[in-house]
Amino acid sequence: MTDLAIILLALFGVWTGWRVFRVDSMVRASFALMLSFIATAGIGLLLSAPYIGVATVFMMAVEMLVMAIFMVMFMMNPAGLNPMSMVHQHRLSIGAGVVAFAGLGAAVLLSDLPDSPVAPGTDVVAQLGFELLGPSMLIFETAGVTLLATMLGAVILSSRQGRFGMADHGSRPPGLEPGGAPAGRRPEKGGGHGHGHGGHGGHGDGGHGRASDDHGGEHRGHMSDGDHEGHAGYSPDGAMGAPGPEHGATHRTPAKSEHGGEHRTAHGPGHAPQDQKAADAPQEDAAPNADPHAHHRKGTGHDGDDT
């Protein structure tokens, strides 16, 4: 009786496994794979491995649902409305599959298989638990650390960019042959065009008018790299008790070759964000002096509305 159920489940598992690559819908394929796993789990239950069977069902149900979502994301035919066959090297693949099955089947049929079944009444789940937290704890912990590394790797691989932007931003891949055209993606155009806003750097809020000469609105003008930095951040992080927090707004304004230097103009405190936007205008650049390395500081010291 158990053998009959195992045969039926095995046939069902193989058939659903075959249907994975025969159906026209990717979502149906993932559910067919889930049915195949459930058949495996049923065989496990019948073969007195209840923990493995139930864990397989739980794990595969979640995994195949996630897979179905990815199918809908990436497939051009997730609903199966059109016939679909996206295969390459078909004959080679069929041959490899048949050879694998024939070889493994011959090994099964020709081997002298052991016959030592689980004794009835054995508490296999408790044995597994003692094994996992006993002699094989190192293996178990290694699997846990490996899963942690997997989580980190998956996040790193799939995140859009890192902390400092895209890793290959502005990079140029090496050529396929020495001195040849770069491989893969074309290098980005531009970089060095002469217009662009500077970045409002750290606009640390706080302090509330104390130590007013520390409020240096640092205005770096005429950077030579011509980057388009953008507004880096306005962070009212509330350093309330700090004695002299810098109210720094770093303006980077673009490259002009005749202004090669770096003007630092320390405005007073209390740059409201509107003021900083206005500060990008050229007339705010009130100190275009001939000496490119001069630093003007006009610490007016008026209290702004930096609350």
Partner: peptide, 11 residues
């Protein structure tokens, strides 16, 4: 069981 496993592996 092993034949079914072989078939699944081949597929």
């Amino acid at each position: 069981v092993l034949l079914a496993a072989s078939a699944l592996f081949g597929i």
